Simulated assay, not measured.
Amino acid sequence: MNAEYPHWQTVPLRWKDNDVYGHVNNVVHYSVMDTVINTWLIERGRLDIETGEVIGLCVESQCKYHASVSFPGELEVGLRVGHLGRSSVRYEVGMYSKETVIAEGHFVHVFVDRESRRPVPVEGLLRSALEELRTGLG
């Protein structure tokens, strides 16, 4: 695993992830990124996605594909924070299979008040969890 990422999570591929061309469809990569990010936020940042006052909204995402992968298999997914602002965060994600980079992408979340949808500062346990993922890149 690549030391550039402070956190790693294994994500199993599913039969339904393959498309008619016999490889994992591109939309699955976005779902994997979203899953790994939100797992970290819920488990480490104690983000309450169901009733919490603060939620994260994705305002930007991108994925670059380097190689294909197919079911059966799994992805080793690296997660880091490239930039942590007052109310936003840029996550950077690397997806690997057997030491081969499959895809690299990023998500930008803006944390907002659930009701008003206005940006709020990233504070407390959430900020601490995101700080753990900082790489010194931003």
Rank of each mutant, 00 (worst) to 15 (best):
I55D: 00
V54A: 11
E131I: 14
V81G: 01
S61W: 11
S87A: 15
S61Y: 15
V54E: 11
V81D: 03
A67C: 03
Y30P: 04
E123Y: 00
F107I: 04
A129C: 02
L84V: 02
L133D: 02
R90I: 13
A129T: 02
H106I: 12
K16H: 04
V112G: 04
N25F: 05
I37W: 10
G73D: 01
D113G: 01
E131T: 14
E74S: 10
L126A: 03
L79I: 05
G124P: 12
G105P: 09
T100G: 12
C58H: 02
N38D: 13
R117I: 00
V36Y: 02
S70M: 06
M1K: 05
G45F: 04
V32G: 11
L57V: 10
W40C: 08
Y5C: 01
V89P: 13
C58P: 07
V20T: 07
R46E: 11
D17T: 07
K64Q: 14
V81W: 00
V120Q: 08
D113Y: 08
V69E: 02
L79E: 00
G85L: 04
V28E: 08
I55V: 08
S70E: 14
K98H: 05
H106F: 08
V27G: 14
C63F: 13
T10Y: 03
E92H: 09
Y30C: 08
R80M: 15
D19F: 07
Y65W: 08
V89A: 15
R127C: 13
V93T: 00
V36W: 00
K16E: 11
E74Q: 10
M33L: 05
I42T: 07
E50M: 12
M95A: 01
V69N: 01
V36C: 07
M33V: 06
H109L: 02
G73K: 02
E53P: 12
V122R: 03
R114N: 06
F71D: 02
A103D: 15
G22P: 06
V93M: 00
Q62A: 12
T10K: 06
W15P: 05
V112F: 09
I102F: 10
L79W: 00
S87Y: 07
V20H: 07
V24C: 01
V27D: 09
H106T: 12
E4L: 12
E74M: 09
L137A: 15
E76F: 01
P121V: 02
G52T: 08
R14A: 02
N2K: 11
L130D: 09
G52A: 09
H106M: 12
K64N: 14
S97V: 08
D48N: 11
F107T: 06
W15T: 10
P6Q: 03
D17C: 03
V11N: 06
E123S: 03
G82P: 04
Q9N: 09
S97K: 09
F111K: 04
I55W: 01
A103Y: 07
E104D: 01
S97F: 04
R80T: 10
V28R: 07
R117S: 02
T39C: 03
Y30K: 12
E132A: 15
G45P: 01
G94S: 05
V122C: 07
S116K: 13
G138T: 04
P119Q: 04
V20C: 09
V20L: 14
L75P: 14
R127K: 15
K64V: 09
K98Q: 09
E60L: 10
E4I: 12
W8P: 00
V32P: 05
E132W: 09
P12R: 06
V36P: 00
